[in-house]
């Protein structure tokens, strides 16, 4: 009963995937699906999470040429979820606010990657430093909307 604040969270399992080429996207999707199925996420929840992962990993390949994805099963305040961390050492994002806007892109994509992925998960955070790289962390809870 003690110590269950709003920020309570423990990691139940942890896994790393290196992303260097296009085919790794498929591997990542499969691994994310495995975890989502394992914790009993609904089909819609799985689809949303995998789609978000797909968007984010694509961004990582396009702008940074690759990076590392950490896959975790986490236990929050009584619910389990899947947490994905996408870390790259690419050029970084100068204006995160702008990058989070629908339709904004520096590449030739639709510019839905970041804001779209954010709408598909329950928790989303991004940090970036120009010249150093970008880290995006997302969580989707088992019973999340």
């Amino acid at each position: 009963m003690q110590g269950e604040g709003g920020s309570f969270m423990i990691t139940l399992s942890k896994d790393l995937i290196q992303i260097t080429r296009e085919q790794d996207v498929v591997t990542l999707r499969n691994r994310v699906k495995e975890l989502a199925v394992k914790i009993g996420m609904s089909l819609l929840g799985q689809t949303k999470l995998i789609t978000a992962a797909s968007e984010l990993v694509r961004n990582m390949l396009r702008y940074a040429g690759g990076g590392t994805v950490t896959l975790e099963v986490v236990l929050g305040d009584k619910v389990t979820g899947v947490r994905l961390t996408f870390a790259d050492e690419g050029p970084g994002i100068a204006d995160i606010g702008l990058a989070m806007q629908d339709g904004y892109t520096t590449g030739k994509s639709l510019g839905l990657g970041l804001p779209g992925a954010k709408r598909l998960v329950n928790e989303f955070s991004i940090t970036s430093e120009v010249g150093k790289g970008t880290t995006v962390t997302v969580i989707r809870w088992k019973n999340g909307l």
């Binding site: 089909l43 949303k48 992925a117 598909l120």
Partner: peptide, 14 residues
């Protein structure tokens, strides 16, 4: 198109 895929696409903004 499967229902889950359709809902996800709309949520994504497509």
């Amino acid at each position: 198109m499967q229902p889950a895929v359709a809902i996800t696409l709309v949520e994504l903004g497509l």
